[in-house]
Design a protein around this nucleic acid. Structure first.
Lengths: 205, 205
DNA sequence: TTATTGAATATTGTTAACAATTTAACGTGT
DNA sequence: ACACGTTAAATTGTTAACAATATTCAATAA
């Protein structure tokens, strides 16, 4: 039996959602841009049905906002106060995740995975592919969140990250971003949870 | 022009979503129950299209969970730790909402609305219509959240409330629930924010 | 008996035509 | 020129048939 790395199978809708997420993160689709179902259907070579599903999915994630009979648009930037609230809530979730690793420590496999993600992060920086940087950044956190609380926690957490990405267009420098994540990982390796918590808090802003 | 109370116009899908929410809250649809699209379509006299939309909507709210090619089920009860986390997060949001009323105080109209909601709450208790009790309870909080942060904040907050309702089947007594909300309202009337915050914290559990 | 294979069934995913609604454009009257 | 109502176009909502995928269950072999 072939036990090599399982290539991820993505449903058609997942792929389209992924592409649209990229477009939004990259700024290609600016906030308040209205989406046209037919247009999207033609672009992806599908009918409007699945497109509608994807639009609802991305609404669930906070990236789009859709009103009755009026279509969907890219969600707008949050006002600063709500932004701060969301950062605070996200911090709560991620701190919870880190602390829960006390009873559910990372395995060697986990560390290998996270290491690999950080390599991808560095590589994306080197290519100056900032959309990929963002996605990889998110996937690092996603890994930890999932480890700590499974799908349930991911579902609670995900909308915050996504919605926050709409607010921050500016990208940090390579060294800062990669180093911050390496710091988190190292603290976890050392089993130094309180240090990891500090590092996570510093990273979420 | 007739300026009397505007009767809310609900889209077909909103009405179906509402009904399903009731079914889930009432326990008529127990956690992990699988939903059948055809069945629902027949029940509501629609085709499967809009039903699918509603299912996605309720997934967004955390009431349902749907997997690829495998349909949707009523979401399961959260494990106690995640439950506590969610309560904590919801408290954060509601405290934020209350505190933001300092700069954006409730009007006479607001108080009238909230009063009316509490009357409905008492009435639902008297009728022992506990599904309606839950919905009215939620709508009280919803009013404050919306006042404080608009649609954006409601969208952040709503999934927590809904998901939490799946965990608590037991209903509190009439006097306890109504009194708690009256306490919140009275503190707000007095302009005593810190007291209102205390009352909200005590109410969310 | 237990596991496994395969066909039959049921369910979800997709499509394209049709209906209802919203948006835009136009013309009329003031 | 401006406001208003009507019509035409564009867009979203809905439907029903079809395709792809999962599930069920019976038959077979170990």
């Amino acid at each position: 039996m072939a036990t090599s790395k399982p290539t991820k199978i993505l449903s058609v809708k997942d792929q389209i959602a992924d592409q649209l997420r990229s477009d939004i993160i990259s700024g290609d689709l600016a906030p308040n841009t209205k989406l046209n179902e037919q247009e999207l259907a033609k672009r992806f070579g599908l009918s409007r049905g699945p497109i509608r599903d994807v639009i609802l999915q991305l609404s669930k994630e906070g990236l789009l906002i859709s009103k009755n009979n009026c279509g969907a648009s890219v969600n707008s930037v949050l006002e600063p106060k709500l932004q701060k609230l969301m950062i605070n809530l996200r911090r709560n979730i991620e701190v919870y995740a880190i602390e829960s690793l006390k009873n559910n420590p990372l395995t060697a496999e986990d560390f290998a995975q996270l290491e690999s993600i950080l390599n991808d992060l560095q590589s994306a920086f080197d290519r100056e592919d900032f959309t990929e940087v963002t996605k990889t950044d998110i996937s690092f956190h996603n890994y930890l969140i999932h480890k700590a609380g499974g799908e349930d926690l991911v579902n609670i957490w995900y909308p915050y990250v996504m919605r926050m990405r709409l607010n921050y267009k500016r990208i940090t420098t390579s060294s800062e971003c990669v180093d911050e994540h390496k710091g988190i990982l190292q603290a976890l390796r050392d089993g130094d949870i309180s240090s990891a918590v500090k590092a996570i808090k510093a990273n979420i802003k």
